[in-house]
Deep mutational scan, measured.
Amino acid sequence: MQIFVKTLTGKTITLEVEPSDTIENVKAKIQDKEGIPPDQQRSIFAGKQLEDGRTLSDYNIQKESTLHLVLR
């Protein structure tokens, strides 16, 4: 499925993911596309910070959902 990741600069990245993917996985995909190390990424969805060990389905993130990426 496709999800979108919006950065603070307003750029939107499209990722191909599975509901079973962990947040860690997703951060690795963002690193592949953007070169941002996962330890600098904070992902926010529906106002909640997403934890690395959880999966997209844990957070009820579905296709075409938009995550927000904040850098630390």
Rank of each mutant, 00 (worst) to 15 (best):
S43E: 09
L67G: 01
D58W: 12
N60L: 06
Q62L: 10
R54L: 11
T9P: 02
T55H: 05
S20Q: 09
S65Q: 11
N25P: 01
I30V: 08
L69E: 05
F45C: 08
S57H: 09
N25G: 08
V17K: 00
A46Q: 13
N25Q: 14
T14G: 04
D32Q: 14
V5I: 13
Q40D: 10
I36M: 08
K63F: 06
A28M: 14
K29E: 00
L67E: 00
E51V: 08
K11Q: 08
V5Q: 00
K6V: 14
I23D: 01
E16V: 12
K48Y: 10
T9E: 11
Q49I: 15
S43K: 06
L67C: 01
M1E: 01
L8A: 12
F45W: 14
N25L: 13
G35V: 03
T66W: 07
T66S: 04
K11V: 09
Y59G: 01
K33I: 14
P19F: 06
K11W: 09
G35Q: 06
E51I: 10
E34V: 15
Q62E: 10
S20I: 06
I3A: 00
V17M: 03
M1N: 01
E16F: 13
D21M: 10
E18R: 14
I44H: 06
I61K: 01
K11N: 08
G53F: 12
N60A: 08
V26P: 01
D39K: 09
L67R: 00
V17L: 03
P19S: 09
I44M: 12
T14V: 13
L8P: 14
V70G: 06
N60H: 08
E24P: 02
S57M: 12
D21T: 08
L56F: 03
K27M: 15
I36Q: 06
I3Q: 00
H68V: 13
L71T: 09
E18G: 07
L8W: 15
E34C: 15
E34N: 09
V26W: 02
T12C: 12
I23S: 02
T7G: 05
L15D: 00
E24V: 07
V17D: 00
L15G: 00
G35R: 06
S43Q: 14
N25Y: 12
I3L: 06
A28G: 07
D58S: 14
Q62I: 11
G47Q: 05
L15S: 02
E34H: 10
Q41M: 15
T12R: 08
Q49D: 14
G10L: 02
L56H: 02
Q49E: 15
I61V: 08
T66C: 05
A46M: 14
A28N: 11
K63T: 11
E64F: 15
N25R: 14
T22V: 04
A28C: 06
G53K: 11
Q49G: 06
Q62W: 06
H68A: 05
L71R: 09
D21N: 05
K33R: 10
T12F: 10
S20D: 11
S65D: 14
V5N: 01
R54W: 09
P19D: 06
D39G: 11
Q40T: 10
T14N: 05
E51N: 05
D39C: 12
V70Q: 08
P37G: 09
D58V: 03
T55I: 05
H68S: 06
L71P: 10
E18W: 12
L15Q: 00
E51W: 05
G53V: 07
Q49V: 15
K6P: 01
S57L: 11
R72K: 12
I23M: 05
S43W: 15
S20W: 14
F4V: 04
K63W: 06
T55L: 07
P19V: 07
L71A: 10
E51C: 10
E24G: 13
Q31D: 06
M1A: 02
T55Y: 04
P38D: 08
H68R: 08
S20Y: 10
Q40H: 13
R42Q: 14
T14Q: 08
Q41W: 15
N60G: 14
E16L: 13
Y59M: 03
R54N: 09
E64C: 11
T12L: 13
T7E: 03
E16A: 08
M1H: 03
K33G: 06
K11D: 07
R54K: 13
R72I: 14
E24D: 08
S43D: 07
H68Q: 11
R42T: 15
E34Q: 08
P38V: 15
F45D: 03
T22M: 05
K29N: 02
K29H: 04
R72E: 10
E64A: 10
R54M: 12
Q2A: 07
R42L: 15
D58N: 04
K11Y: 11
V70F: 11
K63M: 09
T14E: 07
T12W: 08
I23V: 09
L50T: 03
K33L: 14
S43V: 15
I44S: 06
V5W: 02
H68I: 15
T22K: 07
G35C: 06
I23L: 08
Q40R: 11
Q40G: 10
T55P: 10
E24M: 12
L56Q: 02
K29I: 06
K63H: 15
K29L: 10
G10E: 03
D21A: 06
L56K: 00
D32A: 13
S57T: 06
L8H: 14
R42H: 15
E34I: 15
E18F: 14
I13H: 04
I3H: 01
I3M: 01
P38E: 09
S43P: 15
T7Y: 12
Q62F: 08
A28D: 06
K33N: 07
I13R: 00
K29T: 03
K6D: 02
G47N: 07
D58H: 12
K63N: 15
D58I: 03
K11F: 09
T9V: 07
K29A: 07
Y59F: 04
V5Y: 03
T9F: 13
A28K: 15
L56P: 01
Q2D: 04
T12A: 03
S20G: 10
E64P: 01
D32E: 13
E34Y: 13
Q41G: 06
V17A: 04
N60C: 05
M1R: 02
I61E: 02
D21C: 04
K48C: 10
